[in-house]
Design a protein around this nucleic acid. Sequence first.
DNA 1: GTCTATATGAAGATAGAC
DNA 2: GTCTATCTTCATATAGAC
Lengths: 206, 206
Amino acid sequence: MAKSNDIDEKSQAVLQAASTVFLAHGFSAATTDMIQSKAGVSKATVYARYPNKEALFLAVIEHQCQAFDAQLQALAHLNSGIADTLESLGRAYLDVVLSPEALALFRVVVAEAHRFPQIGRTFYLRGPKVIHDHVQRILDTAAEKGELDLRSIGVAAATTLFLGMLRHEAQLECLTHPQAQPSEAQRDAWVHQAVVTLLRAYGSKT
Amino acid sequence: MAKSNDIDEKSQAVLQAASTVFLAHGFSAATTDMIQSKAGVSKATVYARYPNKEALFLAVIEHQCQAFDAQLQALAHLNSGIADTLESLGRAYLDVVLSPEALALFRVVVAEAHRFPQIGRTFYLRGPKVIHDHVQRILDTAAEKGELDLRSIGVAAATTLFLGMLRHEAQLECLTHPQAQPSEAQRDAWVHQAVVTLLRAYGSKT
DNA sequence: GTCTATATGAAGATAGAC
DNA sequence: GTCTATCTTCATATAGAC
């Protein structure tokens, strides 16, 4: 039992260390030495679990995408009017997207998507698609309740537009200015402007 | 004279080859051998111009950002009503942003911005900021003409929101699905939906 | 300045002892 | 399974001839 615990602990240490190293440096600049050393094991221990660097990288990305997905699934929000609902979910979502871990994952996925095509698709399905579906359900409910009139554009397109307004500038600034962290007030403003604009465009005049 | 022409030709060949290689593979996976070989010169010729790989990379990114900037400055558009103006500029801009070269530049800048902080800022100023200023002038003019009412949100924020709607989903899909190319109809739809939504939210009821 | 050839170091992966 | 030590390859950068 002690032995199998050791194995699990080492496996976890390897995956954890590999995640940190790959997300910090990208695939090519990361070295197996850095991973092995950070995990506190030898190279042979790493290669006993993964046949090569590529396989370890793929495992890391899969794992990080799953963790990202889980974070999005757990997002809570108020359940009041559509404005408050969108603002509270939008703000919680923005904090996830702008977290150092999520930004690092996005960076690496984008950088390596041409060499490892499946990671692009995996990331899309476990990130943007998850929040899209979540928001789309909210907009759908609001439309049924008469809070929104989305007949002219459709709920899917409205969801995409809202998420673009919510996320784009924030993510772009964080990706191109890695040292800067947007203030709370800035995040609130981004969310608020996106919600206000969606409602001005498609809110029912009650 | 022949000699100095040779030098210029080789310099250009080096920078051109380095651009192709760095944009295709990123900084770490690109090798000076690939660059030297593609340029048709020897390693010494490369190192006579740039002290090391980092300097060559920075020169490539600067050069590509300038080319990107020039492309954006040259964007033409109709000068009629605000809807047509935004649709024609938006579509031309989207084609630039979704071009393989622009996507590759974005990928590499995002991937390496933490190691070379200045390239993030340079890219932002020569890409997103340029189109932002351009669109902001258009919205400003439209507001003066009474076509838009941006008093509640401000022209800068409205510009940011519009560009987020226009660009975000398109860019995200292209970055995560490197093999796919959005159809003409898809691009038209993205642009149209962004314009329609902006006008529904802030168009004056004439 | 340019080329060929090479020095130097590093990184991925493995062999063999335990 | 794990570790130490090592093999091999390859990448950056330079030396020396022209």
